[in-house]
Design a protein around this nucleic acid. Structure first.
Lengths: 374, 374
DNA sequence: TCGCCATGCAAAAACGTACTGTCATGGAAG
DNA sequence: CTTCCATGACAGTACGTTTTTGCATGGCGA
C-alpha cells in the first residue's frame, strides 16, 4: 500500500469521489483549468464559442463550484452573521419576538437581493458559542442590541470584519456603523398625543433590564413628565419573562395614583393592559387610554383596537444590511456611520377619547396590511 | 518585478497580510505546522507541555483558524441551510409568520447546541437564488413545506447532502427524512371537541393554496363532516394575503347556512372571526364557537380568550434538526425517516359553551407562558 | 548487541478554486 | 521580410488547513 503513493505527480490521486471538480470539467472540455474558471466567471479573454462549450460541458457533468474553495481563495464567503441575544438556552427573548422576526425577515430579503445569505449566531455567553463563531467565515456581522462591551464584536472588529449594529452601541463599542430609532422623539411624540387626547396622568410599563431601548425610552418618559409637570408613575418588570407583563399591568392599575393613560414599552403590554382594565372595570378608551409598542397586527382587531408605536423593524433591517454590505464591498468611501430612523404611531381607538359616541358603536377599521416595509 | 517571483520555494511569499495563520504560530512556537494543528485540535500524541505552549503562543498571536480552509479540507462546514418559501420579493408568508418564527427559534437553538449554525436561504424561485445556494457550503438542509418537486431539494439530494423537511413532502420528493404533525388527527379531535361543546354546524376557514397542511386539514374536515352527517360549509381564501382573512370571515358568517362554530386554519382567523361576529351581533361563545390554529399568545387575553390549536413548532424545529444532524454525522444507522408529532388543543372560553354564567363573569385564566418547547 | 515498541514531531500531499504572468499564433503594418 | 500587437489559452502557484505517512530518538527486554 505504501507503493501506491508514487503516482504521477501531475493528475493527482484521480479522486473517484462524488462531485465533479473544475479539473474534471477542464479534462472533459479539452481545455485548461484556467479557461474553465474564466469561462464560468465571465472573466479573461475568451471567444464566445469557448465560453458556451465550457458551460455546456460543466452543465452536463453537473459541476458545482466548491464554495469552500472559492471562499478560501477569494477571502469572501458571501455570509453575513446575524447575532441574537440568548437568554439561557433559548435564542432571543419573547418580548422582542415580533420585532426580531420582522427585522430578520427584511434583513434576509435585503441580503439575498445582493447575493448574501444570513447566518444566525448566538451572542457569546457560553464558551461553546465562540467555537461556532470561529467555525464560519463571515464577511460581516449584524448585531442586534449589543451589550456594552460585547467580546465578539470587539474580536470581529479587531479582525477587520465590518460590524453594524441595530441599536446605538453603548460604551465605546467600536462598531462600523449603527442604525436605531429616534426613541426620544418617539416617546415624546406619543406622550404628547396622549396628553392631547385628554390624559392627565400617564403611566409607563417598562423593563428592568438596561438595554439601550429600555433606557432611552424610560428617560425620555421621565424628561417628558418633568417638562409637563406630571409626577411619573411606572412599573418595571423583567421583560424577558412572558408571565411578568400581566402582573405588572395589574400592579400599575392597582396603584392609588392610578394613571388615566398607559404606555407599554413591550409587545404583550397591550393585551395585558386590556385584560387588567377589564378586571378593574375600566373602559378603554373612556376610563383609560392605552398605547403600546408592538409590531403585531392583532392590535388592529382587538376590542377596542389599540394604538401602537411601530419601530418599523423592516426598514431597520433593510438599512442595516445596506450599510453593512456597503462597508464590506467598500464601494462608498466610508458609508455614513450612524442612521436614525423614524418610528410610526398607528393611532387606533384606544388612545382616542370619543367625543360622545360609545366605543361599541365605532366600526372596527378595515384591516390594514402589515406594511410591507419601506 | 518578474524577478521577485523566484523566492525560496519553502517559506512562501511571507504574506504580511492581517491575520496570523497556522504557519506563523508554528514559527513562533518553534514547532511544526502539524504539531500546532494537533495541539489545538486535541489530536495526535503530544505531551501536555507542548500542548500548553502552542496554545499560549496561538493566543498571544490572536490566531483564529480559517473556517474556509478547514471546510475545504474536511468537507464539513458546520452550516445547515434553512429554506423558507418566498412570496414575490419577500421571504415567508404572513400567515405562517408566528409558526415559522417559533420553529426557526427552536431549530437555531438545537443546532447551536450541537455546534452547527443555521443559514437562511430562499426557496429557489428566481435564477438568482441558485447562485446564493451554491455560494455556501452546507452540511445539510431543512426545508419547510417543500413544493412537490422542489428543484433545490432534488439537486441537494443528488449531491449527497441530507435534506429533512418540515411537512410531509408531496410527489416523490426524495428527502432524507421528514417531520410533520398528525393533521388528520388534530382536525378530527378538534371537531369532536366542538361537537361535544354543542356545535351543530361547524364551518371552516381554509386556504386556496395546495400545500400539504391546507390539503390534509381540509380533507380531514370533509371526511369528518361526512361521518357526522353534516354538510360542509367553508370559505377558502388566499392565505398569503393579509387582508383576505377578514373578508373571508365576513363571508362565512354572512351565509344563509351560517355555522354555529368555526375553525380557522390560519393564525389571523381568530381575531378576524371575533371582529366579524361583533359586526353581526353574534356573541362568542354563546352564539358562535371559535377555534383557530395559531401559535400566538394573544389569544389567551382576547375577549373572550380563543381556543387554539398549536402545532408545537418548537418541538418540530428541534426534531427536524436532530434528525438532520444525525443523518449528517451518520451516527445512528439510518435514522427513522418519518416522524409524526402530536398537536395540542389549548381550550379557552371561545369553544366552551358556558352552562349558565355570562361570559363576562368568567375570569380570564392566568396567562400561561408560551410553552418553552419540549 | 540487537530488535522492538512507544513517543514526539515533521514533511508533504491533498482540498478546489482564482489569478498572475507568460507563451504561441497569426495577421496587419512597416 | 521583419516588427508588433491582439487574441486565445495555459502553467503554476497561493489560499490555510487536516491528515497520512514516516523518521528519529531513547528505553527496555532478550
Amino acid at each position: 500500500m505504501t507503493a501506491a503513493k508514487h503516482q504521477v505527480t501531475r493528475t493527482p490521486g484521480r479522486r473517484t469521489s462524488g462531485r465533479a471538480g473544475i479539473r474534471d470539467v477542464a479534462a472533459a472540455a479539452g481545455v485548461s483549468i484556467t479557461t474553465v474558471s474564466d469561462a464560468l466567471n465571465g472573466k479573461g479573454r475568451l471567444p464566445e464559442a469557448t465560453r458556451r462549450h465550457v458551460r455546456t460541458v460543466a452543465d452536463r457533468l453537473g459541476y458545482r463550484p466548491s464554495a469552500a474553495a472559492r471562499t478560501l481563495r477569494t477571502g469572501k464567503s458571501g455570509l453575513i452573521g446575524l447575532t441574537v441575544t440568548t437568554y439561557g438556552e433559548e435564542p432571543f427573548t419573547f418580548t422582542e419576538f415580533a420585532y426580531f422576526a420582522e427585522m430578520a425577515r427584511a434583513a434576509t430579503s435585503a441580503a439575498l437581493a445582493r447575493g448574501y445569505a444570513l447566518v444566525i449566531l448566538p451572542a457569546a455567553s457560553q464558551h461553546r458559542d465562540f467555537d461556532v463563531w470561529s467555525n464560519v467565515a463571515l464577511d460581516g456581522t449584524v448585531v442586534i442590541d449589543p451589550a456594552d462591551n460585547d467580546p465578539v464584536v470587539t474580536e470581529l472588529v479587531r479582525q477587520g470584519i465590518p460590524v453594524v449594529s441595530d441599536g446605538r452601541p453603548g460604551g465605546s463599542l467600536p462598531v462600523t456603523a449603527w442604525v436605531d430609532n429616534d426613541h426620544e422623539a418617539a416617546v415624546t411624540g406619543l406622550l404628547d398625543h396622549l396628553a392631547a387626547a385628554g390624559a392627565r396622568r400617564i403611566g409607563l410599563l417598562t423593563g428592568t433590564s438596561t438595554d439601550t431601548y429600555t433606557r432611552l425610552s424610560t428617560t425620555a418618559y421621565l424628561n417628558w413628565c418633568e417638562r409637563a409637570g406630571q409626577s411619573p408613575v411606572y412599573e418595571a418588570y423583567p421583560a424577558h419573562d412572558p408571565c411578568a407583563s400581566a402582573v405588572a399591568a395589574d400592579r400599575l392599575l392597582a396603584r392609588p395614583d392610578r394613571p388615566d393613560a398607559v404606555y407599554g414599552l413591550f409587545d404583550p403590554n397591550g393585551t395585558d393592559l386590556l385584560a387588567a382594565a377589564r378586571r378593574y372595570g375600566l373602559r378603554v378608551p373612556d376610563d383609560l387610554l392605552v398605547v403600546c409598542c408592538s409590531e403585531s397586527s392583532v392590535y388592529a382587531t382587538t376590542e377596542p383596537p389599540i394604538t401602537t408605536l411601530s419601530l418599523k423593524p423592516g426598514r431597520i433591517g433593510t438599512t442595516v444590511i445596506q450599510l453593512l454590505i456597503d462597508a464590506i464591498e467598500g464601494t462608498t468611501g466610508r458609508p455614513q456611520g450612524e442612521q436614525v430612523m423614524p418610528t410610526e404611531l398607528i393611532v387606533r381607538a384606544s388612545s382616542h377619547r370619543p367625543p360622545h359616541c360609545r366605543p361599541h358603536a365605532t366600526v372596527a377599521a378595515p384591516r390594514t396590511p402589515p406594511a410591507v416595509d419601506q
